[in-house]
């Protein structure tokens, strides 16, 4: 089901409560009564088109936004992605670490196994951090530069050089699969780890891992379906305009 602006915000949450994290990132608080998505967005100064794209990408894996250029600016997308990065660093990852730490403390008999998990997650955390840094230091600034050039009257030669050294295509190809390790970690716990004494902790940990995985997948889909197509389209237009401008000059 595609979420449209007429859908009630409350129904969206009933449909997929993980979408709460999306609302959170837009600064939308609960208690919206029977208001529609459109009304709640307006009330919170949230760009409706962008919100719909993000939320639909989140609830439906096969959703593909159609209009890229006409709607919201790139900055909105990168800001949103930046907030999700902050969420991973400030909340998801520390919570998982804390749970693993508690498991280490409460499992005298198989401490070694849990310590292995901890080591594995630490490696994963480092990988995730590298991934995040790469996006924040390379990809986001590049996307902003492309948008600035796209909106300017004249295409500067430096932008063309920038595009020769890097393009959104490169990002898409090098976009490593950081979900794989998380998937393995889940499977090891579900299928192979001898049941720890404190089963509750273990279930909580799994829940957190599933939740982080869903969010990372969503993050990747937003990049792949919203950010990349938009930048690619801009790149093409910039190239075209530049060759026309140089021809006319």
């Amino acid at each position: 089901m595609i979420i449209t602006k007429e859908v009630k915000m409350a129904d969206l949450i009933h449909m997929n409560y993980f979408a709460l994290s999306v609302l959170n990132r837009f600064g939308i608080e609960l208690g919206f009564g029977d208001k529609s998505v459109e009304e709640v967005c307006k009330q919170n100064n949230v760009d409706l088109g962008f919100f719909l794209d993000i939320v639909n990408t989140f609830v439906d894996q096969d959703y593909f936004p159609k209009k890229h250029l006409q709607t919201f600016p790139v900055k909105l997308i990168t800001d949103y992605l930046q907030i999700t990065h902050n969420d991973y660093n400030d909340s998801n990852v520390p919570e998982i670490e804390e749970l693993i730490e508690k498991m280490v403390d409460s499992n005298q008999t198989q401490k070694d196994n849990i310590v292995l998990l901890k080591k594995f997650f630490n490696e994963y955390k480092e990988e995730l951090q590298n991934h995040i840094n790469r996006e924040e230091e390379v990809v986001f600034p590049y996307a902003h530069a492309i948008e600035d050039a796209f909106n300017s009257n004249k295409i500067d030669k430096s932008v063309i050089e920038l595009m020769q050294n890097y393009s959104i295509e490169v990002f898409q190809n090098e976009h490593d699969n950081i979900e794989e390790k998380l998937f393995d970690l889940k499977n090891i716990i579900i299928k192979y780890l001898p049941q720890p004494k404190d089963v509750k902790l273990c279930k909580k940990l799994l829940h957190e891992l599933f939740s982080l995985e869903q969010d990372l997948n969503d993050h990747a889909r937003i990049e792949e379906k919203v950010l990349v197509p938009k930048i690619r389209e801009m790149e093409e237009i910039i190239h075209k305009r530049f060759s026309e401008e140089t021809k006319n000059a």
């Binding site: 594995f120 499977n187 780890l193």
Partner: peptide, 15 residues
């Protein structure tokens, strides 16, 4: 096994 990465396989082997 449903495990893709080398570190994941290593944990399986140790367990």
């Amino acid at each position: 096994l449903g495990i893709k990465t080398v570190p994941g396989l290593t944990i399986y082997a140790i367990l």
